Every structure is written in C-alpha cells, then in structure tokens.
Simulated scan of single mutants.
Amino acid sequence: MSDQLPPQPLSGTELSARLRGLAAQGAAPATGAQARSRAQRRRRSRRVALFVTALAAVALTAVTSGALGSATGAAVPPAASVSHTPTHAPSPAPVQRVTIDLDAHTLTIEGRRFPISGLQDNRPIGERAVTVTAKHPALTLPPDKFSEYVPRMQWAVTFTDRHHHERLLMWALDPSAGLNGIGHDSGAGSIALAPQAGKWVYDVIRPGARVEIKGRQAASADPDSVCYERQPVTGGH
C-alpha cells in the first residue's frame, strides 16, 4: 500500500492563481478556435510536403529517362546520309535525218549521197516530209491492174502517209534489172536505188527517221489503182 496521500482538490482561488501563472508564462491552454487553427496548419504543411515530394520524384524520373535516352541515342549509329545529287537520264538518240532531192536525183543519209531514180510526173509520192515506218527485206505489191505486172521489191523501206496507210518509199533494184532507172524519172510513186547502195541504205536507215523530200512533184496524180507503188502495204504485201 502506498504511503502517498491522494491529491487534494484545489480550491477556486488556488485554481485561478495557477491559471494566471500559466498565462504569464505563455503556456495557457489554447482555446477551441486556436486548436482548430493549429490543426489546419499542420494538415496544410503535410499536404505541401507530399506535393514537394511528388514533384521531386517526377523530376528525378525525367532526368533519369533523359540520361538513358541520350545513352541509347549515342549507341545507335547515325543513318547514312542520302545523296541528293541529281541523276541525269541519258539523252535520247537524235532523230536520223534523210534528204531526197528529186531534181538532183540524189538521196543523202549519214553524210553519204547516192543516185536515185526520180518520179514520173503523174505518179508523185505526194508528201514533203515523212517518217520511216518499217523495213522489209522483200516486199510484193498488188499487181498492176492494166498489165498484171506483180512488183517485187527488195530492201524496201516504207512510211505512213497522211491517210494512215503504210506505203513504199524506197527500194533497191534487182541486179538483173540493170540500172536503167537511176538518174531518170521512172518511179511510179517511190524512188529506187542501185542494188548495193539500196542494201547499204536499208541497213543504215532506222524506223523513226525523218525524210525530207525536196524537188518538183506533180500537183495531181493518177489514181492509186494505177500507181502500183502507191498502194497500201499490208502484211508482207
């Protein structure tokens, strides 16, 4: 059993004296309003501390990610630079030029000139500039309706006329036919060359060649049915 005596209750005078002493020392108990204000300040302080901590964590993450990204980027070799130097397409081959002079009875191609047969007055070619369409080692034309002669041409070169018909432009005389027509106006709608010259021209001339036809041509002509060399070429004929 304790030997201490139980505390004696304070009288009103003693309690008032003690409270005044505490107030004088600044330790007086807070009122209800003061207690609530202090609690609010403590809560605000805790929230600010949590917010600052969260911001610090975000900043640390960003710095770490940036450092990792820099390290990763440094490890990847730079992409090979693409050259922007323009590439030049090869220039198209120049158009081959050929000149037929009906008055001089000559054909000029690749710097060489050959004698030709000219055109009969009533059987002109009817064109001043044509483009070579095709070449035929041998070509059989429709027969002459009056004489039933069947023209057979070798080393024939053709063009397409304004009516979109393929027509004979030049050919080489058969060696057995002689050279009677060379240098004279004997062609029936096309020109002819000597055998060796005709073969050389046939080999050199290219489809797409532009042929200028100079010299006199009759303004009118017999019908194409009469000018067998003016007949449209179809297939091997």
Rank of each mutant, 00 (worst) to 15 (best):
H105Q: 05
T106M: 01
T106I: 09
T106N: 02
L107K: 05
L107F: 04
E110Q: 14
E110G: 15
E110P: 04
G111S: 08
G111P: 07
R112G: 11
R112Q: 15
R113P: 13
F114N: 01
P115G: 10
I116Q: 03
I116V: 01
S117V: 09
D121V: 06
R123S: 05
P124T: 00
I125H: 10
G126A: 08
E127C: 13
R128C: 03
A129P: 08
V130Y: 07
T131G: 13
T131M: 14
V132M: 05
V132E: 01
V132F: 01
V132R: 02
K135A: 06
H136N: 07
H136L: 14
A138I: 12
L141H: 03
L141M: 12
P142C: 07
P142R: 00
P142Y: 00
P143C: 09
P143F: 08
D144M: 09
D144Q: 07
F146Y: 14
E148I: 12
Y149K: 03
Q154I: 00
W155N: 14
A156W: 08
V157N: 02
T158E: 05
T158V: 01
T158G: 02
F159L: 02
F159I: 03
D161W: 06
D161I: 00
H163A: 09
H164Q: 14
H164G: 08
L168T: 01
L169K: 03
M170T: 01
M170Y: 06
M170V: 01
M170H: 00
A172T: 05
A172M: 07
A172S: 13
L173T: 15
L173S: 06
L173Q: 11
D174A: 07
D174V: 05
P175L: 03
S176D: 15
S176L: 13
G178M: 08
L179C: 08
N180R: 14
I182M: 02
G183N: 04
G183E: 03
G183T: 07
H184D: 08
D185K: 09
D185S: 10
G187E: 06
A188C: 12
A188F: 11
S190V: 00
S190H: 14
A192Q: 10
P195R: 10
G198F: 01
